[in-house]
Design a protein around this nucleic acid. Structure first.
Lengths: 349, 349
DNA sequence: TTGAAAGCGCTAACAT
DNA sequence: ATGTTAGCGCTTTCAA
């Protein structure tokens, strides 16, 4: 820098008061004479003062920053640079992630906290996250796991670092999380198909390693079983459009007469619709399709997707709120907050 | 915290050396006796020491953090919470953004620098970004503008804050940037269509307010004009699949005989393909389609998209490298780095 | 209500 | 090669 940034000292001199007083004004502490307050504010303006975060953090012990960690399964063998890059891109490919960020930023920003983006795929990566937090670079972590057996939540809990996870950690880990009543979501989908008079329902599931996938499936199946459908054809997908296409193809091979499909997310539902049309089925007249999430594609694709809404933004905001609470209260018992899904009826079912 | 985090002092005591020596070991400074080094490292391990970032930043004047700013047009009237949330989600909806993040993280991470995510849509937001940087919370900014007339680059330049923009700032701003030779990209697409023997080419452009869109169009048009196609039907899109569908519909209305389409990004190309098939055209037999970007959808959609590749990850990494350089050299002249597009031939053309 | 002063944990210049 | 020491800019008792 050509010119040194102005410090509290400079402002104090300019205003003819002490550092402490300026600090009080800056931090909005009461017990400051309004006249002096004005004086100081003017001095701040004149000098163009901006408080140095490092100095403040050093004493407050707060970074006013949280880590937003996208954490994968963590096969150590895959730890190449290529995979890592792809990992980041893949995470962002799902519209789901944009909504998570949206909700988090919505909460953090008014509190002038900021999210630091981190990707953790390998054990080293995860170690780095821990070190990062222990250095106080961020006050806590918001974790979005892409795999069921992500070991990060456990490490975080063990290190007693403030953290909140999106979705319940797979193993029993004493960590706060927000989640959806996935089972209810599956039930809503089943009920809708039944109400439409579907006689041959089937489902495209998410990766069965993911608990959410299993629960959506369970809710769907149980409801159908209770209504005279003991066996429901299913095909596992990978939450991508492509995998939805492939899964639908298998479903059609198993039962060419399917007339109702529940896909465990919108991307796969979209893929299913696409394949059905290619195979000459009209949606929803021949086959009804229900998605999950109510992501942006649900609204924008044609025909518009009937889907089970997951209030991702709200969930993400709640995640941030919980973390904030843990940080400020310095230690809180693990809390979990569950959200209810909602059926959004559009054109496909 | 129940237990105070160990400090340099603690480690020094444990190892029986001075703070300075521990600091040297931690920072890998030479001139340290290997024996003592070992001693210190053991002490670090025993105490579980992690250097406090705030303290270090206070003296080094580095946050080891950069702001990754997604910056919009900034109509002050739209400054509602809803719009903001949508803004974040929208930015992430484009696979382009995931690639940018990928490239940036790929560069930053090995240098243990971290990106802080920020969205700037309103004037207040932009002011916040400036304040944030002036507080030293990040060492510089990587700016991805979603609109041509984004005023942030100018403010950054004026404040002499280290910053690099993705794409040339609209007005003449003395700021570093990386960009693509968009014109060449348009030319590649035109040449491909000509080589295939297309006689009635048309194009779906990006938003014409975006310089990149205009340049791709210019390159496409100029090349065709030089080859006997003075007039080329065009329809403006908005870089989304939907807008691609709508634009293709208009194009078909203007000339039902089109046999070659250049779309200014892959999402729109995908939309165009979709509509063409719905209208009974085979792709590429009846109509050839060329996209732009070579994003993940290009590879995954069927038929796979022939497209003009933009090396987004490399560009983003270069952006980070430039910023890093500016930060370390403390002041560098604005630099621009241009990348060359490349035609990727797949199935649609 | 305001000021003086201690100290947060670290790096770096200087001394040894 | 190692130790001593002076701050970095801020918040926060404690006095006044």
């Amino acid at each position: 820098m050509s010119k040194q940034a102005p410090t509290l000292e400079d402002v104090a001199r300019e205003a003819g008061v002490s550092r402490a007083t300026v600090s009080r004004v800056v931090n909005g502490v009461r017990n400051v004479d309004p006249a002096i307050q004005k004086l100081v504010n003017r001095a701040i303006e004149r000098t163009g003062y901006a408080p140095n975060r490092a100095a403040r953090s050093l004493v407050t012990r707060r970074a006013e920053t949280v880590a937003l960690v996208v954490s994968g399964a963590g096969d150590p063998s895959q730890d190449t640079r290529d995979t890592q890059d792809a990992f980041a891109a893949r995470a962002f490919a799902d519209p789901f992630f944009g909504r998570v960020v949206s909700g988090i930023v919505g909460y953090l920003r008014p509190r002038s906290m900021h999210p630091v983006l981190m990707f953790a795929e390998s054990p080293q990566d995860r170690q780095e996250v821990l070190t990062y937090l222990r250095q106080g670079r961020s006050d806590g972590a918001l974790v979005v796991s892409t795999h069921a057996d992500d070991p990060l939540p456990a490490s975080l809990a063990e290190a007693k670092l403030p953290a909140v996870s999106f979705a319940r950690p797979a193993r029993e880990v004493p960590l706060s999380y927000v989640d959806l009543e996935h089972r209810h979501g599956g039930r809503l989908a089943a009920e809708r198909l039944l109400a439409r008079g579907c006689r041959r329902p089937a489902t495209v599931t998410g990766p069965l390693a993911v608990p959410a996938s299993r629960e959506r499936l369970a809710g769907f199946r149980d409801t159908l079983a209770r209504n005279g459908h003991p066996h429901v054809p299913m095909a596992e997908g990978g939450f991508t459009t492509d995998s939805g296409i492939a899964a639908m193809e298998r479903l059609l091979a198993e039962d060419p007469e399917v007339d109702g499909v529940f896909a465990a997310n919108d991307l796969m539902a979209q893929g299913a619709c696409q394949l059905l049309r290619e195979r000459g089925r009209r949606v929803p007249d021949d086959v009804a399709v229900i998605g999950f999430d109510d992501s942006v594609v649900a609204r924008s694709c044609t025909p518009a997707l009937t889907t089970v809404r997951q209030p991702v933004e709200q969930m993400a905001a709640e995640m941030a709120r919980l973390l904030d609470e843990h940080i400020r209260l310095d230690r809180t018992d693990p809390t979990c907050v569950l959200f209810e899904p909602e059926l959004i009826v559009r054109e496909t079912a």
